[in-house]
Design a protein around this nucleic acid. Structure first.
Lengths: 209, 209
DNA sequence: GTCTCGGTCATACGATCGTTTGATTCAAAC
DNA sequence: GTTTGAATCAAACGATCGTATGACCGAGAC
């Protein structure tokens, strides 16, 4: 196989540690130690610790973005008015698929996304760009067609609900495990549960005012 | 009015800053400066920075716990089998009510909860106790009665979905504002939208296996 | 008056942080 | 063989971190 590229190893280590300990909770030294690289490697390859963060985030986000766009294009090529369930699948599905690559059952990426979403710090917020805005607007329009009675505000609330459920999915909310089984059910199940859950939620009639 | 108690002011400042910058992103000096107190006040009143965190978390969590338990008791006093919508209201409602006290539209508390939920660090996890376990188990049982076809695993997934939606509610996921209005709709609306959203989601038929 | 003590104060300690620097390595270019 | 430049290295910089210390204050007890 290819020789272990230092830059990539630093990126991998940073992704893992940022997810586990957060941005400020992770020292550059911890990253380079885990990566087996020198302390100065971060400055050399990424400019700064913040530069490393955006590189990590972009590497996680971009495949998800691409899959969301491709899924919507595929639906719109078939019909100008895709049903809600299909839209939920196209939007939420990639959020789960993007989590299975590499880390332990997606928990790591899930945690990273929760941190990104919940952190108001400047460094954490500058990753959003025109790509994310485009995706958001296109899905808003599509959902708006499928749910004609819904006000834009409530629709936007619901789309953020999708993100919330997908993001928090794999993080353990309580210390103890799920009451029934030993592990919070890895594999395909959560993805399908989420589609069921979110499709029903999105299809709910508008809240009467 | 009562004289500004130092301990309370430190608690208030810490709650605000922990929510805005996270636990590790907030220095003890920043807290005491905002509180107008001396640096050593944290060590004196709370033992350590971690002790201050648990005090902050407990102050936020406990009223929510009490309201969730009281709501469930009230429902069970009326009928042994409360409908799903009522259970959702009793469980999720306090998560929203607990957010309106004091901070700007709940965004601050919402962020704090997201941080608590998403952080796997030891200091962040030791707040869960028997009270939280009891609440979880009692609601699981009640939802289990109301949704007889659902597997325990999928039911547990859905309950975590409630927490996810309530927690992420007020945090801005993208930089830009909601597409329609200037502000992400403050006041009572999000709470009612969430009940609609989550009641429909919880009532969805089991995912076919 | 003096003692007591919960509370607050300025100050300092050692550790760790992100970043920078200048030397060193090493394979490809000439 | 020499030069070049990307990459890595050990070492150090000043800043900031959490915590501990001992002096100080002031109101009530005696």
């Amino acid at each position: 196989m290819a020789p272990p590229d230092t830059r990539t190893q630093v990126l991998d280590a940073a992704e893992r540690l940022f997810a586990e300990r957060g941005f400020r909770g992770t020292s550059v030294r911890a990253i380079t130690d885990l990566a087996g690289a020198n302390l100065a490697a971060v400055g050399y390859h990424f400019g700064s610790k913040a530069g490393l963060l955006t590189a990590v985030v972009r590497r996680v986000i971009e495949p998800i973005n691409a899959a969301q766009l491709a899924g919507l294009d595929r639906l719109l090529a078939r019909t100008p008015d895709p049903p809600v369930t299909d839209l939920v699948e196209a939007f939420a599905g990639p959020l789960f698929d993007g989590m299975r690559a590499g880390d332990e059952g997606g928990a790591r990426t899930s945690r990273l996304i929760v941190r990104i979403i919940g952190d108001p710090a400047e460094e954490m917020r500058l990753w959003t760009g025109p790509a994310e805005d485009t995706i958001r607007d296109r899905y808003l329009a599509a959902f708006g067609h499928a749910l004609p009675g819904l006000s834009p505000e409530e629709l936007w609330f619901r789309m953020r609900g999708i993100l919330a459920v997908a993001a928090v999915d794999r993080v353990e909310v309580y210390n103890q495990r799920t009451p029934a089984g030993p592990s919070p059910s890895a594999g395909e199940a959560p993805r399908r549960w989420a589609i069921t859950f979110l499709a029903a939620a999105m299809s709910a009639p508008p809240t009467r005012t």
